[in-house]
Amino acid sequence: MMDATARVLAAEHHLAMHVFDAAATGARRAICQGCDIGTRTSCGDAAGHLPPA
C-alpha cells in the first residue's frame, strides 16, 4: 500500500518505484529474482528527464 506522501517523497528524491500485488503468492520472491512483474515508474531527475529505457 502506498499513500500520497510516499509518492511525493519518491518524486522529490527522484526515486523509481516498483508497484506490484504484494498479496500474490510468490510475487516478492519473483521480483527479488529479477522477474518482470508489476509496473515500474520513475519521476526522472530535477529537470524532468527520464532515465534511459
Rank of each mutant, 00 (worst) to 15 (best):
residue 9 L to H: 09
residue 39 T to F: 15
residue 23 A to C: 11
residue 23 A to T: 09
residue 35 C to S: 11
residue 17 M to F: 02
residue 17 M to Q: 09
residue 15 L to I: 08
residue 44 G to Q: 13
residue 30 A to I: 00
residue 18 H to T: 02
residue 23 A to P: 01
residue 24 A to W: 14
residue 34 G to K: 03
residue 36 D to N: 14
residue 27 A to Q: 01
residue 24 A to V: 01
residue 13 H to L: 14
residue 5 T to Q: 08
residue 31 I to L: 14
residue 52 P to D: 06
residue 7 R to C: 12
residue 35 C to V: 11
residue 26 G to M: 03
residue 33 Q to H: 15
residue 15 L to A: 12
residue 32 C to R: 06
residue 24 A to M: 11
residue 22 A to K: 04
residue 48 G to I: 05
residue 24 A to D: 15
residue 19 V to Y: 08
residue 48 G to K: 11
residue 25 T to L: 07
residue 53 A to S: 08
residue 37 I to D: 00
residue 11 A to Q: 05
residue 14 H to R: 08
residue 37 I to V: 08
residue 23 A to Q: 11
residue 11 A to L: 14
residue 45 D to Q: 08
residue 37 I to H: 02
residue 2 M to K: 04
residue 41 T to M: 12
residue 20 F to V: 00
residue 14 H to W: 15
residue 26 G to N: 05
residue 25 T to Q: 03
residue 19 V to H: 13
residue 43 C to Y: 06
residue 24 A to Y: 05
residue 33 Q to K: 15
residue 50 L to P: 09
residue 43 C to W: 13
residue 25 T to S: 15
residue 21 D to Y: 01
residue 49 H to K: 06
residue 9 L to C: 05
residue 42 S to N: 11
residue 31 I to H: 00
residue 32 C to W: 08
residue 32 C to S: 04
residue 42 S to M: 03
residue 29 R to D: 02
residue 26 G to V: 09
residue 9 L to W: 06
residue 45 D to W: 04
residue 2 M to W: 09
residue 48 G to Y: 15
residue 37 I to A: 01
residue 7 R to T: 09
residue 1 M to A: 10
residue 20 F to T: 01
residue 40 R to V: 11
residue 46 A to C: 08
residue 1 M to L: 11
residue 2 M to T: 08
residue 26 G to Y: 00
residue 14 H to I: 09
residue 32 C to A: 11
residue 46 A to E: 07
residue 14 H to A: 04
residue 39 T to D: 04
residue 4 A to Q: 15
residue 10 A to C: 06
residue 30 A to L: 01
residue 18 H to W: 07
residue 15 L to T: 10
residue 28 R to H: 04
residue 33 Q to D: 12
residue 23 A to K: 14
residue 11 A to V: 05
residue 6 A to T: 12
residue 28 R to L: 13
residue 48 G to W: 10
residue 44 G to I: 12
residue 51 P to H: 14
residue 1 M to H: 09
residue 30 A to K: 01
residue 9 L to E: 13
residue 32 C to N: 13
residue 12 E to C: 03
residue 27 A to G: 02
residue 43 C to V: 07
residue 40 R to T: 03
residue 47 A to Q: 06
residue 11 A to S: 05
